[in-house]
Amino acid sequence: MSEDFYCEEVLSGNTPVRKVWETERVLAYYHTRPYYEVHIVVIPKRHIASLLTVEEADADLLIEMVDVVKKVASQLVSEYGACRVMTNLGEYQDSKHLHWHVFFGKQIRE
Rank of each mutant, 00 (worst) to 15 (best):
E9P: 01
E9K: 15
V10P: 04
V10D: 08
V10E: 06
V10G: 12
V10T: 07
V10C: 11
L11S: 13
L11C: 13
S12I: 05
G13H: 05
N14Y: 08
N14D: 12
T15M: 14
T15G: 08
T15Y: 08
P16I: 00
P16R: 00
K19H: 15
K19M: 14
K19F: 15
V20H: 11
V20E: 15
V20G: 05
E22L: 03
E22N: 12
T23Q: 04
T23K: 06
T23S: 10
E24R: 02
E24Y: 00
R25W: 01
L27R: 08
A28Q: 09
A28T: 11
A28N: 13
A28H: 13
Y29C: 03
Y29W: 10
Y29G: 02
Y29L: 05
Y29V: 03
Y30Q: 11
Y30L: 13
T32V: 10
R33E: 13
R33S: 13
R33F: 10
P34A: 03
Y35W: 11
E37W: 10
V38A: 08
V38I: 04
V38K: 14
H39T: 04
I40C: 09
V41I: 08
V41E: 05
V41H: 02
V42K: 07
V42F: 01
V42A: 10
I43F: 01
P44Y: 00
K45V: 01
K45L: 02
K45E: 00
R46C: 06
R46E: 14
R46Y: 08
R46A: 07
R46Q: 12
H47E: 05
H47G: 01
H47V: 01
I48Y: 11
A49C: 12
A49T: 13
